[in-house]
Write a protein that binds this DNA or RNA. Structure first.
Lengths: 158, 158
DNA sequence: CACAACTATATTGTGCGCAATAGATGTGCA
DNA sequence: TGCACATCTATTGCGCACAATATAGTTGTG
């Protein structure tokens, strides 16, 4: 290769990437959640929707998308599967027929009790302080990324 | 909600989750990479495969999977698309016909020059020290998660 | 040599995730 | 009032991501 020291700073090396560990961690976490969520008959994204609905009800598809950073192309079929599973109900908002209100069924509300152990089960064996630090760091990144997401439709350089 | 102070420590609150910001960041990043990688005719996972191959060649499907934490169910069709795009070649290892060796084509090697700007483009506007700190934190998490991943097939408690 | 156990990749089926687009409803403004 | 424009959800097409399974190849043991 080149003899220059600066050439050693190869920006394309996999272990220089920030995004790759995030990508890998997400895949690995998803894989670890799967067996824990299987008894609840939930996938990880469905679990996230339940977390949001357990906090507040009803929510529109747009509300859920804003909270989870997902769009209708992802949420509509996912919510239909959850509706078919009897966890939620979907109906048009009579005050604004463009909106779809998502509410929990009794089964959906009852499922919360069975989910209470999930965070503890998943968090087992990790240093709580380290995890909290990581959560804050990644959350800050999400806040920045979310500002850029879709921003180019409007302003430009925010 | 409840009057109890302990009840406020709801483990199911979305903003208590560590995994959700990781999930959201990954989706947001993927969305931001898409327009940058489009001129290279690469998706983000395909870009990761190219990063690995630009570092070393040839690699088996298993090598790529170990490096990226993906299995053949994901890689096989992805690699076939990259082969159809003329970026890589796949052939059975004559020394061990079970293995498939993945190599770059000339086009694949040449693409590296066009990819050199990608890290700088994506990293624009971020504090390098903060990014590096985050990278180390998430990488450490990946290392831990990877130990658990598939470990239950063998030992049990690592 | 036989043959069971193991390894590596491929296939199948399901569920995201998103860009692009469509279609229906609401809003503002002349 | 009428009509352009914006908003909200749904649909389509494609590419992951993975569990479960299948298939082909290799190795170890007798």
């Amino acid at each position: 290769m080149s003899g220059s020291v600066a050439a050693e700073e190869d920006p394309l090396r996999l272990d220089r990437q920030v995004c790759f560990p995030l990508y890998a961690a997400t895949n690995l976490i998803n894989r670890l959640y799967t067996p824990v969520l299987r008894p609840l008959r939930l996938t990880y994204p469905q679990y996230l929707v339940m977390l949001v609905l357990w906090e507040e009800e009803p929510q529109t598809v747009g509300d859920l998308g804003a909270r989870l950073h997902l769009d209708s192309g992802t949420l509509t079929p996912l919510l239909k599967r959850m509706e078919a599973a009897g966890l939620i109900a979907r109906r048009r908002d009579p005050r604004d027929e463009r909106r779809v209100l998502v509410t929990l069924t009794t089964d959906g509300r009852d499922l919360r009790a069975k989910a209470l152990h999930v965070p503890a089960t998943m968090g087992q064996g990790y240093d709580p302080a380290g995890v909290e630090e990581l959560r804050e760091g990644v959350s800050a990144l999400v806040a920045i990324l979310a500002r850029h997401d879709g921003a180019d439709k409007i302003g430009g350089d925010n």
